[in-house]
Nucleic acid binder design. Sequence first.
DNA 1: CGACTATGCCTAAGAAATTTAGGTATATAC
DNA 2: GTATATACCTAAATTTCTTAGGCATAGTCG
Lengths: 111, 111
Amino acid sequence: MNKKLLHGTLNTIILKLLKDNGEMYGYEIVQHVKTLTADQLKITEGALYPALHKLEGEGLLTVEYKRYQNRVRKYYRLTESGTKETQSQVADLFEFMRQIQTLLESKPKLG
Amino acid sequence: MNKKLLHGTLNTIILKLLKDNGEMYGYEIVQHVKTLTADQLKITEGALYPALHKLEGEGLLTVEYKRYQNRVRKYYRLTESGTKETQSQVADLFEFMRQIQTLLESKPKLG
DNA sequence: CGACTATGCCTAAGAAATTTAGGTATATAC
DNA sequence: GTATATACCTAAATTTCTTAGGCATAGTCG
């Protein structure tokens, strides 16, 4: 498992998954990331749940409890401002990765 | 300036720049990153110098003081293990970014 | 000359995001 | 009846970074 590299990307990933899937619950997000990345990336619950609560507190997410086979799941969904924030953060992250690639692919200095 | 997104990538960038350029001093690294990314990315000195000291302490870098026009610069260079570590970290970071892109480009779930 | 900017190194306090390491509870499989 | 999967959570510690300075020399502008 490729650890220690999620720094700074967790919120963006959460938002983007919610945008794609409409609504998701915490445990589902963890499993989804594991599946999509073929076990290469692992979101820890200790990072996920506080992040969800923070995004909710910022008004980017809403919560709805739903029953599913004697279980109660806590579904998260983007608000309007959450949708805007998602677009912004996804764009920023792509741009950031582009800059990192520029650095990692740069040739030796000229001067 | 794109802030708060460098998390976890600083060491890798330092190592890669040293690998490309043979030897560099701290201030030069800061300027180089600014130039290469057209002022989009800024390494702060408060992050850089402790990182350099840590990498040196781990045996990945060696230091050599050199005089340049009445100034003394502190040049860093990769050790053998530093070179290996660089390859490993650069590969990991590319792989990580690939996984992030997978997540950010994924379509809605099927099930 | 005086002030400001660039060069070049550094540290320390605090903030932010994460890992680690738990806890609680129900359901299912062996 | 023990273990695994599901489903939520928190708290302490760690890592990494920002902020905000300090110190010193060199060059430029008025």
